[in-house]
Amino acid sequence: MSDQEAKPSTEDLGDKKEGEYIKLKVIGQDSSEIHFKVKMTTHLKKLKESYCQRQGVPMNSLRFLFEGQRIADNHTPKELGMEEEDVIEVYQEQTGGHSTV
């Protein structure tokens, strides 16, 4: 019986991991920090939209990076291997420009 009891508790931990929340720091170019608590399985588009709304800027005017890689709207913290207190960097999107060649 103890084996049966242990097995469901392991499964519960697996389920808990799926719905687990982590805190992420979003740091802007001006070094301002906003902290977000997100589920591991939530699409990061929600975090990006919330950040842009707080900053009063359109979402397409900023780019969000985690460990140097651009974050897509459909990425989740779990897919990117994010952990508690990880940092997302935000930069002004640069458009235009010309070749110097």
Results as ranks from 00 to 15, higher is better:
residue 1 M to I: 08
residue 1 M to E: 07
residue 1 M to V: 10
residue 1 M to S: 08
residue 1 M to T: 08
residue 1 M to A: 08
residue 2 S to A: 13
residue 3 D to M: 06
residue 3 D to Y: 08
residue 4 Q to W: 07
residue 4 Q to I: 12
residue 4 Q to G: 11
residue 4 Q to C: 08
residue 5 E to G: 15
residue 5 E to M: 14
residue 5 E to T: 13
residue 6 A to R: 11
residue 6 A to M: 15
residue 8 P to Q: 15
residue 8 P to S: 11
residue 9 S to G: 10
residue 10 T to Y: 14
residue 10 T to Q: 11
residue 12 D to I: 13
residue 14 G to H: 15
residue 14 G to P: 01
residue 14 G to D: 12
residue 14 G to R: 11
residue 14 G to I: 09
residue 15 D to C: 10
residue 15 D to N: 13
residue 15 D to T: 05
residue 16 K to N: 11
residue 16 K to E: 12
residue 16 K to A: 12
residue 17 K to Q: 12
residue 17 K to W: 11
residue 19 G to F: 15
residue 20 E to Y: 14
residue 20 E to V: 11
residue 20 E to A: 10
residue 22 I to V: 08
residue 23 K to W: 15
residue 23 K to Q: 13
residue 23 K to T: 10
residue 24 L to I: 07
residue 24 L to E: 00
residue 24 L to Y: 01
residue 25 K to V: 10
residue 26 V to T: 08
residue 26 V to C: 12
residue 26 V to P: 15
residue 27 I to E: 00
residue 28 G to F: 00
residue 28 G to T: 00
residue 29 Q to P: 12
residue 29 Q to Y: 07
residue 30 D to T: 08
residue 30 D to F: 04
residue 30 D to Y: 05
residue 30 D to N: 13
residue 31 S to R: 14
residue 31 S to C: 09
residue 31 S to N: 12
residue 31 S to L: 01
residue 32 S to Q: 09
residue 32 S to Y: 05
residue 32 S to T: 08
residue 33 E to V: 09
residue 33 E to H: 02
residue 33 E to G: 02
residue 33 E to R: 05
residue 34 I to W: 00
residue 35 H to N: 10
residue 35 H to P: 05
residue 35 H to L: 09
residue 35 H to A: 07
residue 35 H to R: 12
residue 36 F to Y: 09
residue 36 F to P: 03
residue 36 F to S: 03
residue 36 F to L: 02
residue 36 F to W: 00
residue 36 F to R: 03
residue 36 F to T: 00
residue 37 K to C: 01
residue 37 K to V: 01
residue 37 K to A: 13
residue 38 V to R: 01
residue 40 M to A: 06
residue 40 M to V: 13
residue 41 T to G: 09
residue 41 T to Y: 00
residue 41 T to K: 05
residue 43 H to Q: 11
residue 43 H to C: 15
residue 44 L to E: 02
residue 46 K to T: 07
residue 46 K to P: 02
residue 47 L to N: 02
residue 48 K to I: 05
residue 48 K to L: 02
residue 49 E to K: 08
residue 49 E to C: 00
residue 50 S to Q: 15
residue 50 S to V: 13
residue 50 S to G: 05
residue 50 S to N: 00
residue 51 Y to V: 06
residue 52 C to F: 02
residue 52 C to S: 10
residue 52 C to Y: 02
residue 52 C to W: 03
residue 53 Q to R: 13
residue 54 R to G: 05
residue 54 R to A: 02
residue 54 R to Y: 02
residue 55 Q to W: 08
residue 55 Q to R: 15
residue 56 G to L: 05
residue 56 G to V: 04
residue 57 V to P: 01
residue 57 V to W: 09
residue 57 V to F: 05
residue 58 P to T: 04
residue 58 P to R: 08
residue 58 P to L: 09
residue 59 M to E: 11
residue 59 M to T: 14
residue 59 M to Y: 10
residue 59 M to C: 09
residue 59 M to G: 05
residue 60 N to A: 06
residue 60 N to R: 07
residue 60 N to T: 05
residue 60 N to G: 14
residue 61 S to E: 04
residue 61 S to T: 08
residue 62 L to Y: 10
residue 63 R to H: 09
residue 63 R to Q: 05
residue 65 L to F: 08
residue 65 L to I: 11
residue 66 F to S: 02
residue 67 E to A: 08
residue 67 E to Q: 06
residue 67 E to N: 13
residue 68 G to P: 05
residue 68 G to L: 04
residue 70 R to C: 10
residue 70 R to Y: 06
residue 71 I to V: 14
residue 72 A to T: 15
residue 73 D to Q: 05
residue 73 D to W: 02
residue 75 H to W: 06
residue 75 H to Y: 06
residue 76 T to R: 03
residue 76 T to M: 00
residue 77 P to L: 01
residue 77 P to S: 03
residue 77 P to M: 01
residue 77 P to K: 04
residue 78 K to D: 14
residue 78 K to F: 15
residue 78 K to M: 14
residue 79 E to V: 15
residue 79 E to Q: 07
residue 80 L to R: 01
residue 80 L to V: 02
residue 81 G to M: 00
residue 81 G to T: 00
residue 82 M to T: 01
residue 83 E to C: 09
residue 83 E to H: 05
residue 83 E to T: 15
residue 84 E to Y: 11
residue 85 E to I: 05
residue 86 D to C: 12
residue 86 D to G: 13
residue 86 D to L: 01
residue 87 V to I: 14
residue 87 V to S: 11
residue 87 V to M: 14
residue 87 V to N: 09
residue 87 V to T: 15
residue 87 V to L: 14
residue 88 I to D: 02
residue 88 I to N: 02
residue 88 I to V: 14
residue 90 V to E: 01
residue 90 V to C: 12
residue 91 Y to C: 07
residue 91 Y to S: 04
residue 92 Q to K: 12
residue 92 Q to T: 12
residue 93 E to P: 06
residue 93 E to M: 10
residue 93 E to C: 10
residue 94 Q to I: 08
residue 94 Q to W: 10
residue 94 Q to T: 08
residue 94 Q to C: 11
residue 95 T to H: 05
residue 95 T to M: 13
residue 96 G to Y: 00
residue 96 G to N: 03
residue 98 H to P: 07
residue 99 S to G: 09
residue 100 T to I: 09
residue 100 T to P: 07
residue 100 T to M: 09
residue 101 V to R: 09
